[in-house]
């Protein structure tokens, strides 16, 4: 059965594929050790859009706690942070 972590990971991986296709790059290996920012696919604006996309899709408020950016931009860490982040009610989202 697909877990929430699997769904979030698949969502991010799809965004990576889209970014690679848009910038005509070969997508990097999409394993959990991939650093999304260092791979050069997500510039400052694209990264904030990715985070907002995860929050909207999965009704959560992403909290990366005390992690430094070089840690929370790693795919596996970002998925873990998203799974552990507080949920936001879809009703609140519509306000």
């Amino acid at each position: 059965m697909e877990t929430r972590a699997d769904q979030i990971r698949a969502f991010i991986q799809e965004r990576i594929r889209q970014k690679a296709a848009t910038s005509r790059q070969t997508p990097p290996a999409l394993d959990d050790s991939l650093n999304l920012v260092e791979a050069g696919l997500f510039d400052s604006l694209a990264f904030v859009q990715l985070i907002s996309g995860i929050e909207k899709e999965f009704n959560l408020e992403l909290d990366t706690g005390d992690l430094d950016p070089e840690e929370f931009t790693v795919l596996g860490n970002l998925v873990r942070a998203a799974v552990e982040s507080p949920a936001v009610a879809p009703e609140a989202e519509k306000k």
Binding site: V37, D43, F47, T73
Partner: peptide, 8 residues
């Protein structure tokens, strides 16, 4: 890039 992620 990392500062922008931290800002985000």
């Amino acid at each position: 890039r990392l500062d922008a992620a931290a800002l985000t």
